[in-house]
Amino acid sequence: MTESRSDAKQRPEDGVDPGALLGDDHDAFEAVLTGDDPGPLAVVGQPYSGRHRVLDAAAERLDAAQVELGPGDGIETARRALGDGPVVVGGCQHLYRRAVGGFDALELFLDAVAAAEGPVVTGWNCYAWTYLTAVRAVKRAVPTRVAVGPVATAAIAELILGRYGQMPSFLTDDPGSDRLVTVRRYPVGWGDWTVSIPLPVPTSDGSDPDSADPQDVVFERLAATAEGNVGVATALWEGQSGAAVRPSDIAPPEASSDLDREAAFCLRIILSKERVERAELDAVLGGGVDRLLAQFRRDGLVTVEEATVTLEPTAVPTVVDATDRGRIL
């Protein structure tokens, strides 16, 4: 658990306006802060997407006590913070465990939230939130929800350019001077079904990447790869160490192709918790965790430090894709 805003370590989203992070949901956020909506409020977002920035802003505006729950934190930590005054509780995804009897702490917390006198703002990982709203009546206790991100390409570019003084040279990918055509992917949609179809286009086309500003192309690629996630974009950028950067340099780690359901399930738990105790994974998966974690670590998806497993920020798009493909809740 981390108390209040004493954490001096700079977060990726620091400096980003909460309004830019919340987009259309900013009005709902303001309504809770001004008291027009009694809440309680759920701030929901992807890992590293800037949830903490929004929670910090809420705590500042409400002059609230602030608690950030971590792996292993129980209900008592959350309940201590829930008094008469305003309170901001982040990391609420750590209040449940995906096992029989694993929702007891969450239920007690939701009861305490419902009984709280002052305004309550809670922070949730969006994958944990989706799961919990499907299997538990979370929305009944926390009826107002705002979603964090995705952030526009321009805002990500502004953040990166403003934060890092020394910029590498921006280059476009060399399409090959002898090539007459290049392959582009075009989305084709029918209803809610969209597929990306690769089509050859002439390199002399006016929309050729060569004609665009290399810096814009790099940041477009960065924002697209990170899917607008500020923390992921920052981590991908920090992963570039050369004197020059090309769009093709911006790539998340790849998961092993032979990801079975157990591996995907384990990844989904890590994705929805962001940080999780190894003991929790052992309890939920019932064995074989060491081998899975070794595989994930080799693929650059997680870091394992002592008893805690942490999702790598650069791996978020990869893990989301891998677990969504398996339709794991």
Binding site: R98, A99, V100, G101, G102, F103, V135, R261, R327, L329
Partner: peptide, 16 residues
């Protein structure tokens, strides 16, 4: 309660 928990915590379940 135990059966309900066992259902919704399974790795194979789909709930909405």
């Amino acid at each position: 309660e135990i059966m309900q928990d066992a259902l919704v915590t399974s790795r194979y379940v789909y709930v909405d």
